[in-house]
Write a protein that binds this DNA or RNA. Structure first.
Lengths: 223, 223
DNA sequence: ATTGACAAAATAGTATACGATTTGCAAGGA
DNA sequence: TCCTTGCAAATCGTATACTATTTTGTCAAT
């Protein structure tokens, strides 16, 4: 991409020293390696990345807008703490966004979409490793919504799934298992293949509502 | 500057220097005073606000995450350009979020909510000024969703309404008028007062879909 | 021992400075 | 006339440096 002739075409972002730092911290927060309330010391991060504080601050500011870190008056940034309530509320937003995306996507689905999604579910059934499960789960949902054609909506869904990821990962290891989600995934896909938008949306909504109940129970026990 | 030692004597700012800049630029973008593609020169903004470039850059980075400005490699920031398609897609997201919020809100509504909302609609009917209309319209929707209790959802809705604000303002002056929206607002409120969640959501969805069609037509003519 | 005051260290926030990149423009050649 | 080519000015991005605030540690006084 030595082509300097790409002024807009929003697909690619300009690189800045802040970008790798932003990506690194974001990944560590979302994976749970940086637990809530961890202070994010600017000097330390800057030293580790071999830069000054300025790009570090810009990275942290971006994470602040995404609600992943919190700035306090003269104390700097810490990893944001999501309460039980907020996690459940994120799942309510998931219901809103994903049901709408599916509703818009079903009419646009073509046979190859069905084939690929079914193939994914078969892989799913064989890989029982949890780390793989999480990745495939996210991928399944993304494949369902992709045909909706609304990039901003897809981005919002992706953002939500990342934020909820660590909690859902815990869930499958400790409580839910794979049985129920897999059956529900099949139901959703069948409705899509039948072209029945309402049934597909209803199945998806039930799926997320069930997840929400399990998260609620899990958090109740955990706390 | 000679007295650089005392940029803001005595005024203990609970916020960083970036915050007022962020608010100012955001307001000017959302109101349309800074049209799309306007370059945002860091030195100039810094001079106008009496600060250095550092807080300016942080403000711009925050706006970048919110999709209001775009950074390009060594060219700096410009006001983001929303295409027709993207504006219509934002309305699809509005349908998702607002219908969900209303669905969650209706069961929580109490008599005083109804009274206040009705009072607002009466004010509405009398103020025919466009500037007032826009403000009251946003307020009406917010009052409907408030009882849902999901702060993150409410924040996302507010964000969307601000982004769409300038386009909807144009719409009411040039095309739609006040007749249809007001009737639909009444329908929605009636369903809420009857406690009929499904009817309320259906009415709201029809309301936003109608708006979407008008925006589409308006953009088609305008472009 | 507990508390309060105060000095010292650590950390945040921002201005200044400087190299790097882009842009505007003018002069020179096809 | 149109296209290079080469400065010069403008602008960006970030390292450095400095101030302001918070935190920590020490030492008396109760």
């Amino acid at each position: 991409m030595a082509d300097a002739t790409h002024p807009q075409a929003g697909t690619k972002r300009a690189t800045s020293a802040a970008d790798p730092i932003y990506a690194d911290i974001k990944a560590r927060i979302l994976s749970g390696r940086l637990p809530p309330a961890t202070p994010l010391r600017q000097d330390e991060i800057a030293r580790n990345h071999g830069v000054s504080k300025i790009p570090v601050r810009e990275a942290l500011r971006r994470l602040e807008v995404e609600n992943l870190v919190v700035f306090e008056k003269n104390k700097g940034a810490t990893v944001r703490f999501y309460t039980e309530t907020e996690i459940l509320q994120l799942l309510d937003i998931r219901i809103a966004l994903e049901c709408r995306a599916l509703e818009l996507a079903v009419p646009n689905m073509i046979p190859s979409d069905f084939r690929e999604t079914q193939a994914l579910l078969r892989d799913y059934a064989q890989k029982v490793e949890v780390s793989e499960w999480s990745r495939l789960n996210v991928q399944f949902h993304q494949m369902l919504y992709e045909p909706c054609g609304n990039r901003q909506l897809l981005a919002m869904i992706d953002d939500l799934q990342q934020k909820l990821g660590q909690y859902l990962r815990l869930l499958v290891t400790e409580a839910t298992g794979l049985e129920r989600p897999m059956r529900e995934h099949q139901d959703i896909l069948c409705a899509c293949m039948a072209g029945d938008v309402d049934a597909a949306v209803a199945a998806l909504r039930a799926h997320i509502e069930a997840t929400k109940k399990e998260v609620a129970a899990f958090l109740r026990r955990g706390a």
